[in-house]
Design a binder for these strands. Structure first.
Lengths: 250, 250
DNA sequence: GAATAATTATTGATTATTAATAATCCTTGG
DNA sequence: CCAAGGATTATTAATAATCAATAATTATTC
């Protein structure tokens, strides 16, 4: 479940897992790229063992697909799968909001995120990178505040995957402004202990983010299949994992 | 995510994972038992590699806890954690019911589970083992019918863990009868496409199962701490994983 | 009898080697 | 030219032997 660069990690494979996860999420390794054990073990100056472990962990996190005797490939998720992913995420984010709103000790958390959420109002539509940073941070704070261990870890796993696409949605200034507003409403609902309302707002925001991300992805898909032969970074069929297909830039 | 002895498995570690998972779930390896690489690799006639993989997979599934330089121990879940686990499960089982009820192609599934659910009525309060078997089977059929990949896999993971405790609840004839009734209502709600109602029934049943399981567990805890020195199978503090602590019966 | 040091069991990681296998390349015959 | 089939290659899967690291246990000493 890849604790997304949070709790100071211990073992070697965990460290590697996080470093690789970061590269996948931030796009350094685009979907379809192969993660080859030999290359990675050289790069990190390690033997195959820990690398293997890390790749397996990434598989469990859903960031990588392992084909027997073929190795790890950064998962290329179809639009349909992304929709499904967000659907589950929306439900759990709703649950998260409700449980937080119903937690007697919620004011601590409220105090912690009040300022960042206010700042999001300022940034919305102005500083894209910073807005994204703050938004993801607030999200993480909320997830980590959940006392239920299982909700926390499954949410963390889903978030890790969706963050790849949420970035896309947050690129739109219009969506930023919408998102900022919704966060403010959500904060109010949580503060006042309105569980059902908090759940509804959080779920709706998640759905909206999904719709926005999908819009971008479908555009990208079109332009990709249109000018297929031109650029090398994205072949028409990024699913056919042929040998020469994009190696991770070493 | 340990596909619980379902989809015909391929690789060695997956096979081992399933065999070990079965043993943990059915109580062959009680909570607190240590799973030692050397022993297992001998038993299965394999080298350490695949065993390691399997243990890591079990850790991801939440069935085992790995302590650095100490190895894998069958997770001993606190009552609080079990409550949390069921809370998430209840929410997702509710979601599962709703989505199935809203699926235009649901009648296929309905036809598939109608008979088993009718049979549950007959078995309830009479044949405990068979009732449990059918109930778990129906549950699995429902989970596997979910088209959303993420819901399916997270549910499968949660189910694998909860099945350890659901068994306890299903031991009670009263709960069996209650459960059988609720399943019938659930089937009707699904058949008629009443999503919200299906969600409510499924969630409520999950909660009831939880309450029943907790009751058993708390009884077991009491009797355990009371007559601590007597039996060897469950030490008072099954958390202290000392060297001599229950080895898996080889 | 408690603090500390030695011992032991066990995992973590490395290295080298062989087997298995999927993808690709390279014939060769039509 | 080109399609079918076999050789080649890249890469993972698994084994084995070894050493390092470490947590728990046992022994030792004052």
């Amino acid at each position: 479940m890849v604790s997304a660069a949070s709790t100071l990690t211990q073992t070697l494979p965990e460290k590697i897992t996080e470093r690789l996860a970061t590269r996948i999420v931030d796009g350094t390794y685009p979907p379809g790229s192969r993660l080859i054990e030999a290359t990675l073990s050289q790069e990190f100056g390690l033997s195959h063992g820990p690398i293997r472990d890390a790749l397996r962990a990434l598989q469990h996190a859903g960031l990588v697909t392992i084909l027997p005797y073929r190795g790890a490939v950064v998962t290329d998720v179809t639009v349909r799968e992304i929709k499904e992913l967000y659907q589950v995420r929306a439900a759990l984010v709703g649950l998260r909001a409700r449980w937080i709103a119903e937690d007697p000790q919620r004011q601590e958390l409220v105090a912690q995120v009040k300022e960042p959420i206010a700042r999001m109002q300022q940034l919305a539509g102005r500083d894209r990178a910073e807005y994204t940073r703050v938004a993801l941070m607030v999200n993480r704070t909320l997830t980590e505040s959940v006392s239920n261990h299982w909700l926390r870890s499954t949410l963390a796993s889903l978030m890790l995957q969706t963050s790849r696409y949420t970035r896309l949605a947050l690129a739109s200034p219009a969506h930023q402004r919408f998102s900022a507003k919704q966060w403010q409403y959500l904060l109010l609902a949580i503060e006042s202990g309105a569980g059902a309302q908090a759940e509804k707002i959080a779920g709706a925001l998640s759905q909206a983010t999904r719709d926005e991300a999908i819009k971008f992805l479908e555009q990208a898909m079109e332009s990709r299949t249109a000018g297929a032969q031109t650029a090398d970074s994205h072949t028409a069929d990024s699913r056919s994992v042929s040998r020469q297909a994009k190696k991770p830039a070493a």
